[in-house]
């Protein structure tokens, strides 16, 4: 599949997904701006958001690439998928804790506002990332499988579409997390 892709096929398969990604990201940006501006802790939250949005690259991107690679080279099975999912969740918890710790440090030494408690800065990224992954993992697996089944290259299609899905749901899940925790 991969070895036969011409430049035309790469454009044909990647460009439409990229359009979805662009539209999704512009929507995510608009929603993000409208939502975050209403919070008193905006200056702190805006620090966390770029790190949360990079979730697609840190966690979802490799998960999708591993799944599509396993499908293409014929190593995809239930066990490999479960291990792939578990490792993605384990990595996500580590990532979320790190985002929380670094946010605390930036707040303490650079921004010096201390609007949110330290516990809150740790809990917000953990819940937001876990919620997002719970939507992202089943969706991307389904899309990967669907693309492969219809003879399309999952590498070209799934990642750009999932960028939009991930970014959009990161913002939505972030908002729900803030509401759940009663963030000012």
């Amino acid at each position: 599949m991969e070895s036969q892709d011409t430049k035309g096929r790469i454009v044909k398969e990647t460009f439409p997904s990229e359009i979805v990604s662009i539209i999704g990201d512009i929507l995510a940006g608009v929603i993000l701006t409208l939502i975050l501006l209403n919070f008193k802790s905006f200056i702190i939250l805006i620090l966390i958001i770029p790190a949360l949005l990079s979730l697609r690259g840190n966690l979802s991107g490799p998960f999708i690439a591993r799944t599509s690679k396993d499908l293409i080279i014929g190593e995809f099975d239930k066990r490999s998928w479960i291990e792939n999912v578990l490792s993605t969740y384990a990595l996500s918890i580590v990532t979320a804790i790190l985002i929380g710790i670094f946010s605390i440090m930036l707040d303490l030494f650079l921004i010096k506002k201390k609007i949110l408690s330290m516990e809150m800065l740790i809990i917000i990224p953990i819940i937001a990332i876990l919620l997002t992954l719970s939507i992202s993992i089943p969706t991307s697996t389904f899309l990967n499988y669907l693309a492969f089944r219809f003879g399309l290259n999952p590498n070209n299609i799934v990642n750009p579409i999932m960028t939009a899905v991930d970014d959009f749901f990161t913002v939505i899940c972030f908002y729900f997390t803030l509401l759940m925790l009663g963030v000012p």
């Binding site: 990229e18 662009i22 590498n155």
Partner: peptide, 20 residues
């Protein structure tokens, strides 16, 4: 955000293609 995603997406597609 879209510009970040565009560069990231193309690089992700390229990496997964190169790997395969």
């Amino acid at each position: 955000p879209s510009l970040n995603s565009l560069t990231g997406d193309i690089c992700t597609v390229l990496t997964s293609r190169l790997t395969t």
